[in-house]
Amino acid sequence: MQNAISVQQLTKTYDSGLTALHSVDLDIHDGEILALLGPNGAGKTTLISIICGLVRPTSGNVLVQGHDIQTDYKTTRSLIGLVPQELHVETFESVWNTVTFSRGLFGKKPNPALVESLLKDLSLWDKKDAKIMTLSGGMKRRVMIAKALSHEPKILFLDEPTAGVDVELRKDMWQLIGRLRQSGVTIILTTHYIEEAEEIADRVGVINKGRLVLIEEKNELMRKLGKKQLTLELHQALQTLPEGLSQYDLSLVDGGATLVYSYDTQAARSGIGSLLADLNRSGIAVKDLSTKQSSLEDIFVSLVEGAR
């Protein structure tokens, strides 16, 4: 599969001396939805800003559909749409004018029909002549999305699109992202919401302290996370596992006082019932039991904490 974006050894050190990115390598596949997770100040926005031309890289390269973002910036920028994190809007302008302006700015001939369908898609059509300052925060966010889509980009960056957005609009946004993906647009979004990444992303990347600490297919990640553990506290510590229980994925911890059973939640049967029956049959008394599932959030937190 061709790469929509190829980030190579990208480093950014600001004048203040802060290094926001440490030689990041990242390939973004054509047509995928990539979710970038990371705490505040991890470097997500810096990465996006460099690709879009707002920030200059200190070293390293970025190729957008094979074009260099510095030597061939006109080509790369016309392929990209950006919805920044902050609500930057021309308060005194009308919705229609500001979206039309964006299209022209990106070198496209006026196309009122396209702008109309965009505004209708984003439920902004009845507000097309309204001044932007009269709109609610969620509406302004949609205006920014309309601006970013006005020049029919092949790649869309959404920097925290659902921060401070109500549940309904978030669902709308997810649907919109789904439709865009259907039309072949590559989408990169940053988010704080793990749930959001789970819901819509094809791949998930985690950035922390300017480094890409993980990038994986979401399904693969979910499969790994699909493992669940049953912890059984025993009345009497065991020296070894009884023979009859060898078919289970069991391990003894705590000097034999605790038995841990790992199982796959995706499997048809968890095997918990039969394990308990077998334990009973072997005369092993269970004092207490608990189950635990590691979530994307746990992995995320452990990655981020581990780097601290």
């Binding site: 790369t76 016309s78 930057h88 809007v89 021309e90 070198g107």
Partner: peptide, 17 residues
């Protein structure tokens, strides 16, 4: 004004010299 309200981002990310 675009610098002040932040809308300058769009001009800077546009394919313009």
């Amino acid at each position: 004004f675009p610098k002040f309200v932040g809308t300058i981002y769009e001009v800077l990310s546009a394919p313009v010299n």
